[in-house]
């Protein structure tokens, strides 16, 4: 993937000098589940790495993940991506449900859990079993934070996500709501109904609702951080700078001995 950047005297260079030629072989990193996990799956057989990037829309998640995939593959590591609403089972219906705002709270929450479980079993687990890097564009924490803001029971949510694999690293990209708005407008000139929390009735003014909702979600993330131990990263800087920090942190995840 990664092509050598140098030009003329390439032929003269020793083979060992080509970038990416020495591929680091990561030691297997057996996983555990938050709870009972998936019936019949031994988490010790999941030897790949699960790396989660969390953050609001506009926090730069997708950009960072795209770069990380490029980089990881360049380093010779097989990589797959997962994210919300990407399951074969329910992504289409979830999309339609959001358009129409027709499902009640618990139903929508369980619908998202179905989407997660389907990707967990059909994408993440097989990949982790084969020793792949799995990059998750959001994970159970976003789903929990959104539901907690909507007043759902935390013990119920934690039981629901007992099926999830404990990631090797979780990075939360912190960007203040005011900055998120600027980035969103720079891209699409409109705010998303759900990302503005309009279903909560915080304010009829969408701008106001967006700011208040994003603060509530971010408060929940800070609380979840103390339970699940995420790495909080300042998302309010250049793409390259942030990516550099992510790479360094992922390198140490790859180098980490099992345990």
């Amino acid at each position: 993937m990664a092509k050598p950047r140098r030009s003329a005297p390439a032929a003269a260079a020793a083979a060992a000098d080509w970038p990416g030629i020495s591929v680091q072989v990561p030691s297997p990193a057996p996983k555990r589940f938050y709870g009972h996990g998936i019936p019949g799956v031994d988490p010790r057989s999941l030897t790949g790495r699960l790396i989660v990037v969390e953050g609001a829309d506009g926090s730069g998640r997708s950009t960072q993940i795209a770069r990380l995939v490029h980089w990881l593959e360049g380093q010779g590591h097989p990589t797959v991506q997962v994210g919300l609403k990407r399951s074969t089972l329910v992504s289409e219906e979830l999309e339609r449900a959001q358009q129409g705002n027709i499902l009640s709270r618990i139903t929508l929450s369980l619908f998202y859990a179905t989407d997660f479980a389907d990707q967990l079993e059909n994408v993440m687990l097989p990949a982790l079993k084969s020793g792949f890097m799995v990059l998750a564009d959001r994970y159970i924490y976003t789903l929990m934070a959104r539901d907690l803001v909507r007043g759902m029971d935390e013990a119920w949510l934690r039981n629901l996500y007992d099926i999830a694999v404990v990631p090797d690293a979780v990075f939360y990209l912190q960007v203040p709501p005011e900055e998120l708005i600027q980035r969103t407008f720079a891209k699409s000139h409109e705010l998303d109904y759900w990302e503005s929390g309009m279903d909560l009735g915080l304010s009829r003014d969408m701008f106001d609702s967006f700011i208040r909702y994003q603060r509530l979600v971010s408060d929940q993330f800070l609380r979840l951080q103390s339970i699940y131990n995420f790495t909080m990263l300042d998302g309010n800087r250049s793409v390259a700078e942030l990516n550099e920090e992510l790479r360094q942190r992922i390198e140490s995840v790859l180098a980490a001995p099992p345990g």
């Binding site: 089972l89 219906e93 449900a97 079993e121």
Partner: peptide, 28 residues
């Protein structure tokens, strides 16, 4: 509702469901 039904029947038709997804989609 139509939406939940459509997802459930796709899962059943294609034998896409595992014990866990079967359980969560029926809870939905």
């Amino acid at each position: 509702s139509e939406l939940v039904k459509s997802a459930t029947s796709r899962g059943k038709k294609t034998h896409l469901l595992t014990p866990t997804t079967f359980s969560v989609i029926h809870a939905t």
